[in-house]
Amino acid sequence: MDGSALIIALLSDVHANIEALSACLKHAREAGVGRYAFLGDLVGYGADPQAVIDTVACYAAKGAVVIKGNHDEAVEKTPRYMNDSVRAVINWTRDSLSDEGKDFLASLPLCVREQDFCFVHASAAAPERWDYIDSAAAARRCIDAAQVTYTFCGHVHDQELYFQGAGGKTMAFRPVPGTPVPIGRHRRWLAIVGSVGQPRDNNPAAAYAQFDTDRERITFRRVAYDHVAAARKIRDAGLPLSIAYRVEKGI
């Protein structure tokens, strides 16, 4: 990790939503972010996969961490578990991407470990299985597998901070956006940073997080963006209406 880069922006589940991504990147730039990590699912659901990949590829060229998510993998080979509407979007995405774009997605790693950080899309315990971290037990498995102080992931679209309590038990904390939370190196922490392009907690604002490596503080963020325009593009592209509706309502 570059010593001068004190604040890392953690962005996940962009889902081809260029409006949301641009708003978060602008927000991060203004907050003095020096480094970027994209935690997977650049595409899927949204109407701008190529624009998102082009943007993220620029950041990757400048040293950003970029992780592969299950939707990114699905562009290579549609998996069986995806339902019809998601499958339709994946097929559309594949058709609308350039070869370079597809190669970029295919080249992404499932997990990156750097010093005391682990970046992964779903869970550090068997990343390729795309298990959801939806309980303290699942968080514990991820933390144990990561073997580092800080694990950052996405996949689950709601922001959550898992930590070890005084007695060693793993517990969940629902963060308050905008409040810096001290997360010291004497404990292990797992942050689920939320979804940039498709938040699902009845709040359409884009979600991401900033980690201040020097002061050991994480700040979860919500950024208002033109989600109505993003939803309209999904409709105009002929993608399933239910997906446009979800982006519009944040559900």
């Binding site: 901070l161 930590f163 309590g165 005084a166 038990k169 904390f173 308050v176 409040t179």
Partner: peptide, 14 residues
């Protein structure tokens, strides 16, 4: 404090 993780949750001992 509601804005921070509660390190003492579920810890009757402490």
């Amino acid at each position: 404090h509601a804005h921070f993780p509660d390190l003492l949750a579920e810890e009757h001992r402490f």
